[in-house]
Amino acid sequence: MSNASLAPLPLDDLSDAFAPDARARAILRGRRMLREDLKSAGGTYDLGEVCELLGAISRQAVDKKVREGALLAVPGPGNRRRYPTVQFDGEGRLVKGLREVQAALPTDNPWMVLNFLVNPDARLGNRPPVALLRQGRIGEVVEAARRLGEQGA
Rank of each mutant, 00 (worst) to 15 (best):
Asp16Leu: 15
Ala70Pro: 00
Arg31Asp: 13
Thr107Cys: 15
Leu148Pro: 09
Ala24Leu: 11
Pro120Cys: 06
Arg146Gly: 07
Arg134Gln: 07
Val101Tyr: 01
Phe116Arg: 06
Val141Thr: 00
Leu11Ile: 12
Pro8His: 15
Ala7Gln: 09
Ile138Glu: 12
Tyr83Gly: 15
Arg23Val: 05
Val95Ala: 10
Val142Glu: 01
Val101Gly: 05
Pro10Val: 07
Ala7Ile: 12
Ala19Thr: 14
Gly55Ile: 11
Arg147Pro: 02
Leu133Glu: 10
Ser15Arg: 11
Arg67Gln: 09
Glu36Trp: 01
Arg32Tyr: 01
Glu36Lys: 07
Asp21Tyr: 05
Ala131Gly: 14
Arg146Pro: 13
Ala103Asp: 14
Ile27Pro: 01
Ala26Val: 01
Ala24Pro: 06
Trp111Thr: 08
Val66Arg: 03
Gln87Trp: 03
Leu105Ser: 01
Leu54Gly: 02
Met1Glu: 13
Lys39Ala: 15
Pro75Thr: 11
Gly78Glu: 13
Leu38Gln: 05
Gly152Arg: 10
Leu124Cys: 12
Arg134Cys: 06
Arg23Tyr: 06
Ala41Leu: 04
Pro106Cys: 11
Arg99Gly: 03
Tyr45Asp: 10
Val142Ala: 04
Asn3Cys: 01
Gly78Pro: 12
Leu54Ala: 13
Gly30Asp: 10
Val74Glu: 07
Arg93Tyr: 07
Asp12Tyr: 09
Glu150Gly: 06
Phe18Lys: 02
Gly78Leu: 05
Val118Met: 09
Asn109Leu: 15
Leu47Asp: 00
Asp12Arg: 14
Gly30Ile: 01
Leu98Gly: 01
Asn126Met: 14
Gly152Asp: 10
Thr44Pro: 02
Ala70Ile: 00
Leu28Phe: 00
Asp21Ile: 05
Ala144Phe: 06
Gly139Ile: 00
Gly97Phe: 09
Arg67Ile: 02
Asp46Val: 03
Leu117Lys: 07
Ala104Phe: 04
Pro77Ser: 14
Asp63Pro: 05
Arg146Asn: 07
Gly69Cys: 14
Tyr45Glu: 08
Ser15Thr: 02
Asn109Trp: 06
Ala145His: 01
Pro84Ala: 00
Asp108Ile: 12
Glu100His: 07
Lys96Pro: 03
Lys64Trp: 03
Tyr45Trp: 10
Leu28His: 01
Val130Gln: 00
Pro8Asn: 15
Lys64Thr: 13
Asp12Asn: 12
Arg134Ile: 06
Arg82Tyr: 13
Arg93Phe: 11
